[in-house]
Amino acid sequence: MPTDPSSGQDAAAWSPLESDGWYAARNATTALRDALVSAGLEKDFPYLRAELNAFGNGLVELGRVSPGTAERLAELLRLALEHSFARDHEEPTSPTTIEEPQGRT
């Protein structure tokens, strides 16, 4: 903890880049970013970033998204859950595809 006397630093010298919370948030943000890029949603999450709160806990900021983006994300999650359920109980008979919403390039 940054204010712990045994850490060898005082709170003024502490850097968020030296905390496990920061690296956990950064790694999770990177993994989510890569998944969004694979799904073609990288431009739909402009506020995606890693953060650290005042207590040193890492957070992933997703930010605001359009209703269309939220619906597409919900569909991706639904399909992933169906695929996971099918894989746990039996082999799926055909691959699941996602239809691209009209108007997207």
Rank of each mutant, 00 (worst) to 15 (best):
D4C: 09
G56I: 04
T30E: 12
L52Q: 04
K43R: 15
G8W: 15
A31T: 06
N57V: 11
S15H: 12
T29P: 00
L17G: 12
R26L: 15
A31V: 05
A25I: 02
N57P: 00
F55N: 15
T29N: 06
A11M: 11
V60K: 02
A39T: 04
L17N: 05
T3E: 15
L48P: 01
N57M: 07
P46Q: 00
A54F: 05
E51Y: 04
G21C: 03
N57W: 08
S19E: 05
L32P: 01
A12H: 10
S6T: 15
A25Y: 06
R49Y: 08
N53M: 02
N57K: 09
A31Q: 12
P16G: 12
S6R: 14
P16I: 08
F45R: 00
E51F: 02
A35H: 03
W14I: 02
S38A: 14
A28Q: 13
T3Y: 13
T30M: 11
D34R: 12
W14T: 06
Y23F: 10
D34T: 12
P16E: 10
A39L: 13
P46L: 00
D4T: 08
Q9L: 14
D4K: 08
A31L: 10
N53I: 03
E42W: 03
D10V: 09
E18K: 11
P5G: 08
E18L: 14
R33M: 03
L48Y: 04
P5Q: 08
N53C: 01
G21D: 02
L52M: 04
D4W: 10
Y47W: 04
P16Y: 12
P16T: 06
G40Y: 04
A24G: 03
P16F: 10
W22P: 01
S6Q: 14
P5R: 11
Y23E: 12
E42Y: 03
S38L: 08
V60F: 05
R26F: 12
